[in-house]
Structures are given as C-alpha cells and as structure tokens.
Amino acid sequence: MNLIGYGIATIGPALAIGLIFSALINSVARQPEAKNVLQPLAILGFAVAEALAILGFVLFFLA
C-alpha cells in the first residue's frame, strides 16, 4: 500500500518537472540570450519539485 501511495505521489513532481523544463525550453528557444538568467531559476524550481518527490520517498520509509 505504501508503495502504491508513493507511486501516486510521484505523479505531481513528475508533472511539475515536465512543466518547468518545457517552460525553460520554450523561453530559451524564444530568447537564447536570457539563458543565463532562466537556467538557475528553472533549476531552483526543479529542486523544489524534486524535493517533494524525495519527501514522499522518505515518508514511504517513515510511515
């Protein structure tokens, strides 16, 4: 049951990461010179979203 719960919990971060990087690719394709500004932002967003997945993973072991 925990396993299935964790599997469901990964859906959210997966969608978030996909959205973040699609937005990054779109922006860089439109404005390549803005890459230096956009990439750290995207990485921060990715870290936050991925942290949710890791938290779910940890809770899977905790609970």
Binding site: V37, Q39, P40, I43, L44, A47, A51
Partner: peptide, 12 residues
C-alpha cells in the same frame, strides 16, 4: 539540500 543547490547552481 535546497540551500546548497541554491548556493551551487541557483545563483546566476
């Protein structure tokens, strides 16, 4: 972890 990530990769 997120603080270190910001230190290493998050600063433009």
């Amino acid at each position: 972890s997120m603080y270190v990530i910001w230190l290493r990769y998050g600063r433009p």
